[in-house]
Simulated assay, not measured.
Amino acid sequence: MDPQTEIELQAAAFRRLQKHLMQDRTDVQNIDLMNLAGFCRNCLSRWYQEAAAEQGIEIGKTEAREHFYGMTMDDWKANHQTEASPQKQADFERAFEQNVTRGG
C-alpha cells in the first residue's frame, strides 16, 4: 500500500471513531472511557491539537474540543454528560494519572 492511501485509510478510520463517539454512542460517558480504556473524547481532541502543533498549526484547547465534539463543551455537557459516582471519580483520578499525567 502506498503511503498516501494509508494516510487516507487512517483518516477515514479516525472519522468513523469520531462519529461513533460523537453521534452513535453519546450515552457512553468520558469518565467511563477513561476508566476502561485510558482515553476519552478529550484525549482525542488533545491528540488532534498536538498533531496540529506538529504541523505548525496552533489550535487552542477549546478550539480543538469544539472541532472534535462539533459543539462547545458546555453544550456537550448539558446534552450528554451525567453525574459520576464518587467511585467513578476516584477511578478516573487513577486512570488520568496513569494515562495522561504520566503516560502522555
Rank of each mutant, 00 (worst) to 15 (best):
P3C: 05
Q4C: 05
T5P: 01
I7H: 06
I7Y: 09
E8G: 00
E8S: 03
Q10A: 15
Q10T: 05
Q10S: 10
Q10Y: 14
A11M: 12
A13H: 01
A13T: 03
R15P: 00
R15C: 13
R16L: 15
R16T: 12
R16P: 00
L17D: 10
L17I: 07
L17T: 06
Q18C: 09
K19L: 14
K19C: 13
H20S: 13
H20L: 14
M22Y: 05
M22V: 12
M22A: 10
Q23M: 10
Q23I: 09
D24S: 09
T26L: 13
T26K: 15
D27W: 15
D27K: 15
D27N: 12
V28I: 12
Q29W: 10
Q29T: 04
Q29M: 13
N30A: 10
N30M: 08
N30F: 08
I31M: 04
I31G: 00
I31L: 08
D32W: 14
D32G: 07
L33F: 03
L33Y: 01
M34H: 04
M34N: 02
L36K: 10
A37L: 14
F39I: 08
F39K: 04
C40L: 02
N42V: 14
N42L: 14
C43M: 05
C43W: 03
C43V: 08
L44K: 00
L44N: 04
S45Q: 05
R46V: 11
W47I: 03
W47E: 15
Y48P: 00
Y48N: 08
Y48G: 07
Y48Q: 11
E50P: 01
E50Y: 12
A51E: 06
A51S: 07
A52K: 09
A53C: 04
A53F: 08
E54F: 12
E54K: 14
Q55I: 03
Q55V: 08
I57W: 07
I57C: 04
E58W: 11
E58C: 05
I59H: 06
I59F: 08
G60F: 15
G60P: 03
K61N: 05
T62E: 11
E63N: 09
E63L: 14
A64L: 09
A64Y: 06
R65I: 10
R65S: 09
E66Q: 11
H67N: 11
F68G: 02
F68S: 01
Y69C: 01
Y69R: 03
Y69N: 04
G70D: 02
M71V: 03
T72Y: 07
M73E: 08
D74T: 13
D74M: 13
D74I: 13
D74S: 10
W76T: 00
W76D: 00
K77L: 09
A78H: 11
A78W: 11
N79S: 12
N79Y: 11
Q81M: 15
Q81F: 14
Q81N: 06
T82W: 12
T82N: 06
E83Q: 12
A84G: 01
S85I: 10
S85W: 09
P86R: 07
Q87A: 10
Q87S: 11
K88C: 01
K88A: 06
Q89W: 07
Q89P: 04
Q89Y: 09
Q89K: 13
A90W: 04
D91G: 09
D91V: 07
D91L: 13
F92N: 03
A95S: 06
A95Y: 02
A95G: 02
A95C: 02
A95T: 03
E97V: 15
Q98I: 09
Q98W: 11
Q98E: 13
T101H: 07
R102M: 11
R102V: 08
